[in-house]
Amino acid sequence: MFLELKNTAVGYKTPLIRGIETDLALGEICLLIGNNGVGKTTLIKSILNQISLISGDILLDGKNIKTLSNKEIAERVAVVFSKSQIPANYTLTDLVSLGKYIHYPYYFELNAQDQNEV
């Protein structure tokens, strides 16, 4: 599995969501829906290791996120929050392509395989 959540509780001082048991294979799509304040963004930030877990484990490629650097997480996961400021005149292709540039120095262009994947 690419992403695994094992008996995970997310929140701040008290859990917003607890007992999360799920996984996603690479290429699967997951839709998070819910009212304001139920923990959707908190869950995503916990997966990115930006917020500490209350309990449980989150694994990316079988590795606990607590052991991964921010760069290692960014190489595996890309997120665009709904309130993100996207530069004017960017196409969807441009935006998705940004997730590929983490693997290259700033002056490289995407190769044919990268462009196909985007």
Results as ranks from 00 to 15, higher is better:
L59H: 08
G34W: 01
G11Y: 10
P105Q: 06
I44H: 03
S52K: 03
N49R: 09
V38W: 09
E4M: 03
G27C: 04
L32Q: 00
G39I: 00
L59C: 03
S84T: 15
E117I: 12
T93E: 11
Q115G: 00
E75V: 05
A78L: 06
L60H: 02
V77Q: 06
L95T: 00
L5A: 07
R76I: 01
S46G: 12
T91S: 15
R18H: 11
I44N: 11
S69W: 13
T41M: 05
G37Q: 00
D57Q: 13
K45S: 14
Y104C: 06
R18C: 09
S55K: 14
R76G: 01
I58H: 04
K6H: 14
E21L: 08
D23G: 12
S84D: 06
S82E: 13
L32Y: 04
P87H: 02
F81K: 09
L32K: 02
N111Q: 06
N64Q: 05
N36T: 13
G34E: 08
S82N: 14
I58R: 06
S69Y: 14
I17F: 09
T8I: 10
L98S: 12
L32F: 11
S52G: 07
L31C: 07
I33W: 05
H103L: 15
Y106L: 06
L53Q: 06
I47S: 05
T91I: 13
V96G: 00
L68M: 13
S82D: 15
L32W: 03
I44Q: 07
A88M: 10
S69F: 03
L53I: 05
F81D: 04
S69P: 01
R76S: 03
A88E: 13
G62D: 00
L43W: 01
I73L: 04
F108V: 05
G19D: 14
I51H: 12
D94W: 01
L32P: 01
Y12M: 01
I44R: 05
F81H: 13
N36F: 01
I86F: 03
L110P: 06
N49E: 04
R18S: 12
L5Q: 08
F108S: 13
L92Q: 06
V77Y: 10
D61H: 15
